[in-house]
Amino acid sequence: MKSCLIVDDSKVIRKVSRHILENLGFTVDEAENGKLGLEACDNAMPDVILLDWNMPVMSGIDFLTHLRQRDGGDKPKVVFCTTENDVEHIREAINAGADEYVMKPFDHETLQIKLQLVGFA
């Protein structure tokens, strides 16, 4: 079964994302910040990571930089989920190793399309 890790400090976003992902056939784990997200990846590397940009403890960009340096950290497809929508932020996310980018708030259809673009769903 496909696995996804949601790394977001918003409990509401994690809940909504989990609902969408489970309906798409994913098993889902959650982390409320980048540090906990990296710990989850060390325990079991997911197939896909939905990643928030602005979080306490460790930002999404810092998480992604650390993830891509780990053994197996090149494997997960990372979809940045954020309210940041300017070209500079998108470029920074892609340069850091993100595979796709989705704006909050998003719905089932939008997330499904993004997951299809990275080879899932």
Results as ranks from 00 to 15, higher is better:
26 F>L: 05
8 D>Y: 02
20 I>H: 10
108 H>A: 06
70 R>C: 00
25 G>K: 08
7 V>I: 10
100 E>G: 11
70 R>E: 06
96 A>I: 00
99 D>G: 09
111 L>A: 01
117 L>D: 15
15 K>T: 14
47 D>Y: 00
83 T>E: 12
49 I>T: 01
101 Y>M: 04
119 G>K: 06
34 G>Y: 07
29 D>Q: 14
21 L>H: 04
56 P>F: 03
115 L>V: 08
29 D>L: 09
104 K>Y: 04
53 W>I: 05
25 G>Y: 03
49 I>M: 02
12 V>Q: 04
88 E>V: 02
19 H>R: 14
17 S>W: 06
24 L>A: 09
91 R>H: 14
70 R>P: 06
10 S>R: 02
37 G>V: 01
94 I>F: 12
119 G>Q: 01
26 F>C: 07
115 L>T: 11
100 E>Q: 14
36 L>V: 00
34 G>S: 11
10 S>W: 02
56 P>I: 01
42 D>Q: 15
83 T>Y: 10
84 E>W: 13
91 R>A: 11
51 L>M: 10
41 C>A: 13
93 A>M: 04
31 A>K: 02
77 K>F: 11
91 R>I: 09
44 A>M: 14
15 K>A: 13
6 I>C: 08
48 V>Y: 00
104 K>A: 07
54 N>E: 15
49 I>G: 01
100 E>A: 13
110 T>R: 07
64 L>W: 05
37 G>H: 01
77 K>V: 10
26 F>S: 08
18 R>F: 01
75 K>C: 07
37 G>E: 02
5 L>K: 03
99 D>N: 15
104 K>D: 04
65 T>E: 09
51 L>C: 09
90 I>S: 03
87 V>H: 09
41 C>D: 10
74 D>L: 07
58 M>S: 04
76 P>V: 06
87 V>S: 12
43 N>H: 14
41 C>E: 04
54 N>Y: 15
84 E>Y: 02
101 Y>N: 12
47 D>S: 06
71 D>R: 10
1 M>P: 15
102 V>F: 06
1 M>E: 12
24 L>P: 12
77 K>N: 14
27 T>R: 06
117 L>P: 08
17 S>R: 05
51 L>S: 14
109 E>F: 10
72 G>H: 11
87 V>Q: 13
77 K>S: 15
53 W>N: 15
